[in-house]
């Protein structure tokens, strides 16, 4: 207040239109949460892939149908896709401005959603058929 003795506007009036702060930390928070989840999940995923290298079609399906590999894979895919959607979102808002930003953000979310759906469906289909 004392810094602006002649300013009739409130602190809110001065910061409006300077940019969004509303849910800005939510994305950063989930990037961190998923990144922590992905540390052990990535180790498990790489372990699983190394195991699958030795197997043929039937062997791969039998391995992925077991509970622990299936759950590990689902967790890795879901945490990974949420993480990459948020990461690409921050790349988009850094480099793309104006109307095309909205299209890019929508395309990013739809791509991630479709990819997650495809991976989860395929994993469950292997596990249950």
């Amino acid at each position: 207040m004392a810094e602006h003795p002649s300013d009739l506007r409130t602190p809110l009036g001065r910061v409006r239109f300077l940019g969004a702060a509303r849910t800005g930390t939510t994305d950063a928070w989930f990037v961190h949460v998923t990144s922590i989840a992905l540390i052990p999940l990535t180790v498990g995923f790489v372990w699983l892939i190394l195991d699958l290298l030795r197997k043929d079609y039937n062997g791969v399906r039998a391995e992925l149908a077991r509970p622990i590999p299936a759950i590990l894979l689902l967790a890795f895919v879901l945490a990974g896709i949420v993480h990459m959607e948020l990461g690409m979102r921050s790349i988009i808002v850094d480099y793309i401005n104006g109307q095309s930003r909205a299209w890019a953000l929508a395309a990013n979310t739809l791509f991630a959603a479709l990819l997650a759906l495809a991976c989860v469906y395929a994993t469950l289909r292997i596990a249950f058929t």
């Binding site: 079609y57 992925l64 896709i81 990459m84 690409m88 991976c119 058929t129």
Partner: peptide, 26 residues
């Protein structure tokens, strides 16, 4: 990070192929 974004398509392809028949997986 951006490369992995595209690279996940490889994982999706692998899972979809494994969920389909042996010829698709081949």
């Amino acid at each position: 990070g951006a490369a992995l974004y595209v690279g996940v398509l490889l994982l999706a392809w692998f899972l979809i192929a494994a969920s389909a028949d042996a010829a698709t997986f081949a």
